[in-house]
Amino acid sequence: MAIVTTSTTRTQADAAPTPRKRSKLAPRAYYWFVWPAVLAFAAFHTLPVLIGVFYSFTNYAGYGNWDFVGFANYANIFRDDRILQAYGFSFLFAIVATILTNAFSLAIALGLNAKIRARNFWRGVYFVPYILAVLVVGYVFQFLFSNSLPKILSGIPLFADNILTNPDWAWTAVVVLAVWQACAFSIIIYLAGLQTIPGDIYEAASIDGAGPARQFRSITFPLISAFFTINVVLSLKGFLQVFDPIIALTNGGPGTSTESVTMLIFRGGFSGGEFAYQTANAVLFFIVITIVSLLQFRVLQRREADF
């Protein structure tokens, strides 16, 4: 009887339909959506980049004939005082602006995350600068620095005259504009991070006697360290490529005191007859930004692991 039962069970198992294995490949419809985007990206981004890298090894002026010059353009960059000054200004500007942006953004985000009246309204107010056109805001700030502040702060020697005409301090005006606008995006990221922290942790810390400063140092900042990493990397990368605020406020002046790398590439490459030379500068600048971003990720993510 057992033999019959076993045979019957085995026959039923063999007759049962085997479940169909799910295909690991996505449906064809997905590829019809993906491939146009890939082709467009390759045509309008990857291909121009490769062409630019090719021309960086030539003496092409943007028109006419050209010849290969090898690595001469790259070698000349390290002997060009104007380019070295532009790199120095870009890094000084980016470091100062990154520090100020993240300090102000985190402080404002902590305030907006607290239980205050009209919290959602203030969140919207602080995000407004991010959606405004940089050039329009820049011209408003230009009027402020060149006309309003000299009258309001006439007793302060630094602001008695137009600060935008001061070669030693004009860069600070660019920092003010860039930080004011960049804080909006950083605040949103910090708010997203703060909202992931359970309130029970703060209640337990309060019961243990931890004050606001200790809670921030031991709870808040460690738990939003990943968001801090994102903000710092994006801020430094964006500020290194500063262009619009300088165009609106100083146009690189006085002289070349506020001339960034991106502005120098634009001026020399498109109107200065240095297309190949500035293309080589752009390739080098891309490598520099990539290395800086990777170093930031490595250092800051190691910091996250320590927490």
Rank of each mutant, 00 (worst) to 15 (best):
N76V: 01
G64Q: 03
S293Q: 08
L135M: 15
M263A: 11
Y277I: 01
A40V: 13
W66T: 01
Q301V: 09
G155P: 02
K237C: 09
S56F: 00
Q181A: 05
V140Y: 06
G272K: 09
S218G: 14
I51D: 02
S90C: 07
Q296I: 10
F141T: 03
V53G: 00
G209H: 02
Y31R: 00
L47V: 15
L284M: 07
V283S: 00
A61S: 08
H45V: 15
Q85M: 06
I187M: 11
A26P: 15
A29D: 12
N231F: 04
S186I: 11
G268S: 04
I246Y: 05
P222V: 07
F78E: 06
S146F: 07
I152V: 15
S293E: 02
I188N: 08
P212H: 06
W180G: 05
R302N: 15
L25I: 11
G155V: 01
V292T: 13
G268D: 08
T258A: 11
V136C: 14
K115W: 09
Y126I: 04
C183K: 11
A205M: 01
L25F: 15
D208Y: 03
C183T: 15
F243A: 02
E259S: 08
A15W: 02
Y74S: 05
S56W: 00
I131R: 04
A184G: 09
G252V: 01
T172Y: 13
I163Y: 03
T8E: 14
G273Y: 14
F185R: 13
P19W: 06
V136L: 14
L112M: 09
Q85C: 01
R217L: 15
G193W: 14
E274Y: 07
R22K: 15
A204I: 03
V4L: 07
I201G: 04
F143D: 10
E274W: 01
L100G: 12
G268P: 00
V174I: 15
R303H: 12
P17Y: 10
F54K: 00
R214F: 03
G209I: 00
L92R: 15
A114V: 01
L50P: 01
T58Q: 00
R267G: 06
A282S: 04
M1F: 13
D306A: 11
A94D: 09
L164Q: 03
A43V: 13
G253A: 07
R123H: 07
L249A: 09
T220Y: 12
S56K: 00
N120Q: 04
V38E: 03
A305S: 10
I187A: 11
V233S: 09
K115E: 10
S218I: 02
S225G: 10
I108D: 10
A276L: 05
Y63Q: 11
A40S: 13
D306K: 07
D161F: 09
T256C: 02
I265T: 07
T5L: 11
T290N: 06
V179Q: 09
A16C: 01
D14K: 05
V125T: 10
N251W: 10
C183G: 03
R79E: 14
P222Q: 10
W66Q: 01
V233C: 04
A133K: 08
L132C: 13
G211L: 01
N65C: 06
V140S: 12
I201S: 06
V174D: 08
F185S: 12
